[in-house]
Design a protein around this nucleic acid. Structure first.
Lengths: 334, 334
DNA sequence: CTGTTAGCGCCTTCAT
DNA sequence: ATGAAGGCGCTAACAG
């Protein structure tokens, strides 16, 4: 790989001049500039980004920690939002996945930091609040996604999960339902699960409906889990006219369980999901759900990170997102 | 951020000694080693990876170009495979997406190269063969995924698309079908589309069935497109008992079109998809499809890249993948 | 406008 | 076993 020295030699100028034309950092005589340009082309020169980073103290990289790239389209969508703005700022994205494992998350963050990322965007599920808070004291700007870290609220971009399930319940109630089940994740120290359950409870409470523990069922938070959970629910022989799913996948699994038993959705049971994942359009009936605006969240998180980096004020960055209902065909008025 | 100098000062040793304990590159007196270690801890020292890369000529990064992170779970799954092996090799992954645009792909590769990635794994759809071939002449090892670049075959990890649709057709024929439609992408200079169409043709040919152009229909390669394409097909009023979809999304779209018109799958029309995307389980009936082992392909691509890097022989890396049928419920024997 | 010079943080001989 | 010194490729004063 050719270096700046090679170019300077070929163009018969000093390395500073070359540097100047590379970075447009000062005026250079047109003829010399031409000479440099053609020398660069001839040698297929590309500035060594490490040398640049070493001296300029800027890596132009934003490090991103995600749960896992493959757990559904979720992170992919977030990345889409992130990339859009990071790209526009002419920076790079380095992605690492923590796979929801504490050790791995810690290691990934460590690695990102060591890479001298200019800023970090973290979607950490496994690390404790204190550890995350600690990180914000370092000299690398850090932004948290989908999580509120106490003491670092102004660096968190997140969705109000509680409000989400609450909306879902409200919607069902407005459609005449009152026996509403909740099909949730069995990972009870998963913050999202707690919050969504809270939302379910307060939605009922608002309407003066007592919580019936028999109507709450849980399993692993995917389609298979949803299927199982609804199966359990059915076995309990409690009456319900609707259920809210922890996420769309569980809702879809639950629906297939109902259908297998000859129960029609929404004729006999209404269903509301959560997330509005793209491939929900494959599900029949079209699922009514709560939108998780993950792409926008990604965008705002990146925006915030860049602001922090530039020391610009970040007041107009949206931190807290409020979910909205997406009404489709899986809820029936009764 | 503390530097090696700070550490050496605090530990009362020379820079070299610190370097030695960092890299385990020579014997160091136990007491000094201890002093260094504790100094590193105290200063929260992390070696500057740029300085390391600058002098060692190794960035420990593998650059990856993907079509887009969000066009379905496809790339996410590939990333899963890639990451697994890159991670195991203690290296990093830098991802950029080309969004199927020639300019952007070129720019992304340029950027990755400038980042001094140790090797590149490219999933390029838009760049011409010659340009890609050219890249392999540089000094950075390059691996192509899901594409055969003439002249660089030993650096390509790919699936035999042609064989895939051929399998699908064979399967349908073995189930008694002979009027088999093909619902494909309208992007005709898209290599995958060409190859899959070839497979469809040769599948028919094998069975001595003449190709009926009326049975081939195309649209944008997603669910909506599938819907449209099948709509067209229906309007043509040609008889068919089955169709092969360009991919699962088109198949799913086609199925919903059929269902809306009261046509049962597979009772009246059998369907075979392509890819076996994860969320296919949401589709009713369960779709029979051709598996695209994208995760394994990702793994092997990464494996190949690492081999190339280490100059190890890469003979046992699997380059060409052969698709296999996944038989589920959307095909009926007639 | 241009060239010279001094590092950025680290690794690696080369002496000791 | 250890320290001193040189240099990786580049940028940023500083002199002309």
């Amino acid at each position: 790989m050719a270096t700046i020295k090679d170019v300077s030699r070929l163009a018969n100028v000093s390395i500073s001049t070359v540097s100047r034309v590379i970075n447009n950092t000062a005026q250079v005589a047109p003829e010399k500039r031409e000479a440099v340009l053609s020398a660069m082309k001839e040698l297929n020169f590309r500035p060594n980004s490490f040398a640049q980073a070493l001296v300029s103290k800027r890596s132009n990289c934003i490090g991103v920690l995600v749960g896992d790239l493959c757990g559904g389209p979720f992170f992919a969508q977030m990345m889409l939002g992130l990339e859009r703005v990071i790209d526009r700022a002419n920076k790079f994205t380095i992605v690492m996945s923590g796979n929801h494992d504490e050790q791995r998350e810690r290691h990934a963050i460590e690695a990102l930091l060591q890479r001298q990322c200019d800023a970090l965007i973290l979607h950490s599920k496994a690390l404790p609040d204190e550890e995350l808070l600690e990180l914000t004291h370092g000299d690398t700007p850090i932004v948290f996604v989908n999580r509120v870290v106490p003491g670092a609220e102004e660096r968190c971009v997140w969705l109000d999960n509680r409000e989400g399930t609450c909306c879902a319940v409200r919607h069902l109630i407005s459609m005449g339902h009152s026996k509403i089940a909740f099909v949730t994740s069995d990972d009870s120290d998963f913050t999202d699960a707690k919050q969504r359950f809270e939302g379910y409870k307060s939605g009922l409470e608002e309407a003066g409906i007592a919580l019936d523990p028999q109507l709450v069922t849980s399993a692993y938070a995917d389609e298979v889990g949803g299927h199982k959970a609804v199966e359990q629910l059915l076995e309990r022989n409690v009456e319900f006219t609707a259920f809210v799913g922890f996420n769309d996948a569980m809702a879809a699994g639950g629906i297939s369980c109902l259908m297998e038993r000859g129960l029609q959705v929404p004729e006999q049971v209404s269903v509301v999901g959560f997330d509005d994942i793209p491939y929900i359009r494959f599900i029949r009936p079209k699922l009514t759900t709560v939108k998780y605006p993950i792409e926008s969240i990604g965008e705002q998180a990146a925006e915030l990170a860049l602001r922090l980096l530039d020391g610009k004020n970040s007041e107009d960055v949206r931190l807290k997102f409020v979910p909205e209902m997406v009404v489709r065909d899986s809820v029936k008025q009764i």
